[in-house]
Amino acid sequence: MATTSLPVERETSRTAKAPRRRLGGGLMLLPPLALLFIFLVLPLILVLVYSFYTLNPITGLMQQDFSLQNYKDIVNSSLYLKIFWRTFQIAIVATAVALLLAYPMGYAIGAVAPPRLHGLLLLLVIIPFWTSYIVRTYAWIGILQSHGFLDSLLGWVPGLPTELLYTRTAVIIGFVHVYLPIMILPIFASARNLDRRLIEAAQDLGASPWRTFWRVTFPLTLPGIVAGIVLFFIPTFGSFVTPQLLGGTGDLMVGNVIADQFGEAFNWPFGAALSIVMTIVVIIGMAIFFKFADVDAIYG
């Protein structure tokens, strides 16, 4: 699809621009690019460099010679592997739960609701997202704690757990709430672009609504689903505030361990190495996911 439409677009924009403004536009890019380069690219490179340093166990000073010790420590320690595995599990479960909520939501707004309501319905999705992360997480403490809001509202229902705070469930709820909006948006976009006639064509050719969903609607909205999953999974995997505030000691994630290296443990090289491993794990995870989801094959 893109391969047929892009060259045309490029052609027109090439003819439309005045050659003398090329330099001016380039100059304008310099300040923001310099900022990004100095305060993001270089620092990230420095993280990589630091990850090969070590801390002298006696003096507590950093030794600036190349060593793979930090990485060895991570791989050889069952504790860190366990934490990575736990992080992975929590992120996967949260992503799955979020998808169950986000898909019908994005579909309902994009493909069922009349277009004139799109702006309003999306605004209602975005408002919670723009509201302070800390405040929202704090609110869940109040809702989920024993004798909390949920308790006072539904405490009379037998069989409901009274204490959800500091459990894995609370962490999942927190993640789903915090990042659900950014999963809904791409799903909405793909559902809105769905050609209704394709659904009608499928039904016309004998497919029941259920079969139509699996053979037409789902594959055509898959790009939105994939984008939503990526946008949800990455920040969830790297989070440390939510498990810190809502989880118990058994729910700490990689982000917490990294944060600790810069606070309590004060081992920057090890924290840097953990960050690098986390980034690599996320990249590999996403690569596997993309291969599995095979979005290109849909529009190939």
Binding site: R10, S13, R14, K17, R21, R22, G24, G25, G26, M28, L29, P32, L33, L36, F39, L40, V41, P43, L44, L46, V47, I234, P235, F237, G238, S239, F240, G255, I258, A259, Q261, F262, W268, G271, A272, S275, M278, T279, V282
Partner: peptide
């Protein structure tokens, strides 16, 4: 307003702060 080789890369760079996990960005700084 500009077309130059590697423009896509530059544009991607502008979105990097959104993609790098906050923790990593924080410790890097």
């Amino acid at each position: 307003r500009t077309r130059f080789p590697g423009r896509g890369l530059v544009q991607a760079l502008f979105y990097l702060p959104m993609l790098v996990p906050g923790v990593v960005c924080g410790i890097a700084l």
